[in-house]
Amino acid sequence: MGEYLVEAKNLCKYFQVDRHHTLKAVDGVNIAIRKGETLGLVGESGCGKTTCGRTLLRLYEATSGEILFDGKDISKLHGKELMQFKHRAQMVFQDPYSSLDPRMTIGEIIAEGMDVHVKLSGKERQQRIAELLAAVGLTEQFASRFAHELSGGQRQRVGIARALAVDPDFIVCDEPISALDVSIQAQIVNLLIRLQRERGLTYLFISHDLSMVKHISDRVGVMYLGSMVEMASSKEIFSHPKHPYTQALMAAIPEVDFDGEGKKTIERLQGEVPSPINPPAGCRFAARCKYATDICRQEMPKLVELEPDHFVACHHCDVCGK
C-alpha cells in the first residue's frame, strides 16, 4: 500500500457558541488517507463529517492538531505555500443549486480557480475549459450558459469540473450526490470513479448514504458526535462491524436486495444523537449503547488497531465485536 497523502493527527475543531458553551464538532480525530484511495466518511447529521472535511482543506482553521499533506504540516502555512497547497486540494460541495454563482457563466465558474493558480493565454484557457467540460461529460457549449439553465446532475458535473480545473491530487467530496435523483446519482458516482482511475485522484467521500459509500470507498471511517469510532476497509466494515454504533448503523440500512422473506425486524437504535455542545465525558455513544458500563461513562476509548487495518474505539470490543 502506498504512502499517506493526507494525515490528520488529533484534529480538533471547536466552535464557540457563547461564553460558556463550546460546540466540539470534531474532537481528536485521526485520519490517514493513502495516495489514490477513497476514504468514505459516514455518520448521522451533526456528527462532524463536513467540518472534518473542511478543516482538512483549511477552509476552517483547526483548533488544535496536526494536518500533514504529503508529509508537510499545512496547518501553519501562509501566503505562497498555502496557495500551493490549495492548488493540490479541492472540494466538491453538497448542494449543486447554491454552490454555483448564478451570475457567472459556467466557463467563468470553472476557470476562476485556474486563473488564480496558473497563467494561461486566452486561447489556452478556452481550450482547457472545453477539456474539463468534456472530462465530466458535458459539451463545449455549456461554457457560455448560466447555472439556472442546467439540471441538478449537470450542475454537479460543473462542480466537479471546477474542482478538477487546477489538477488537484486530493478532492473532498462533501455529499456530492445527496441532492440528486437515484438514476443521476449513479451517473455522478460512475464519473467520480472514472476520474479517479484516469487521474489517480485521492478522495475523501463524505455521505450518509451507506450503500453508496460502500460502493465507492476503499476504506470507511464512521464518525459519531465528533469522534471516529471505527475505521476499516469498506468490505470489512460492512461485513464485520465491530463498534456497536456501526452495527446499529448497518442494521438500519434498508436493503434493496429482496429476499422474499418479508421485512427485517432488528433491534433499532433508540433515541437521537445528543448535542455536541458540552458533550458527556467518556464514550460519546455510551448513552445509547446496550453494552455500556461504568468505564464507558468515565473514560473515552482510544482508537486501537484490533485487527490489521481495522481500528475500533470501544471498551468492550471483545463482547460486542462478535
Binding site: A186, N190, S211, V256, D257
Partner: peptide, 17 residues
Amino acid sequence: SSVPALAKENKQELYAL
C-alpha cells in the same frame, strides 16, 4: 440496477440511465 447492492464488489460501474 442504479442502486449499489451491499453484497456486490466495489467500484463496479453502476447502471446509469
